[in-house]
Design a protein around this nucleic acid. Structure first.
Lengths: 123, 123
DNA sequence: CGGCTACCTAGACGTCCGTCAAAATAGACG
DNA sequence: CGTCTATTTTGACGGACGTCTAGGTAGCCG
């Protein structure tokens, strides 16, 4: 039964998960929070959105820059951006009519660290 | 060594995704394949399973070592192991009555690289 | 063979999730 | 104010997913 209301917004919540999962077993709590982040990355549209935003100039992009790159409707894009935002992978800021989304490198790096394979750790 | 026209299913296909997503936008095909891997990590039980296997002695563990650590039924564990196996994150081998699952460091490292934030890439 | 253990498959059930169309909100501008 | 554009919210629908029980397969041993 892993369907508790997930309270997970900022990368700081994950600060105690900065250990490669190959190094020591995750406890249930860490796993719950990390899984939320990976689940957010588990959709092709969201992955591409994140990549587009992160690789864009200044690590940020306007929604209008993103919508055209996909074949899904604008509300769907908006929904996916919300998911990414709720996991702390991106943040958003309104500027006049437009909304800009920015990638959060710290969140990315944390997940990268969890999956990393330190030297000598490989079987 | 170079590109092979072979259409394998899993981790091998991801070889051309070894670039941080912060570096350049993923195309639809790469995103699709990477998302499958991240989706596999997007469940708390699977994350803990992977962590247990990877951090176990020799990077491998018997199913019987895993079942007790969770409050879900054995078939559910088996199902999750299958998902991890299908994405190439683990492999399995039968030894007599027991089945051992082994973590695949290369698959982990690839995903880690995709999420990594190279120096100077942060906004 | 029969029975035992370890593990997997089949099928069912309820929930979650990605998608859309339609409507709502926010801001710019005349 | 009214209208236009940009973006989000709402509500609905269909399919995917995690879980279970029941039953099946594989190997060991007496």
């Amino acid at each position: 039964m892993s369907k508790q209301p997930v309270r997970l917004t900022l990368a700081t919540d994950l600060d105690d998960c900065r250990v490669p999962l190959i190094k020591e077993p995750l406890n249930a709590d860490q796993a719950e929070r990390l899984a939320s982040s990976f689940k957010a990355l588990g959709d092709p549209v969201r992955l591409r959105l994140l990549s587009l935003i992160a690789s864009h100039e200044g690590g940020q992009a306007c929604v209008c820059d993103l919508t055209d790159a996909f074949e899904v409707s604008a509300p769907t894009i908006s929904h996916h951006l919300k998911v990414l935002k709720e996991t702390g992978l991106v943040s958003s800021e309104r500027r006049g009519t437009w909304v800009y989304y920015r990638a959060e490198p710290a969140a990315l790096e944390l997940l990268s660290t969890v999956l990393s394979v330190p030297q000598g750790a490989a079987a």
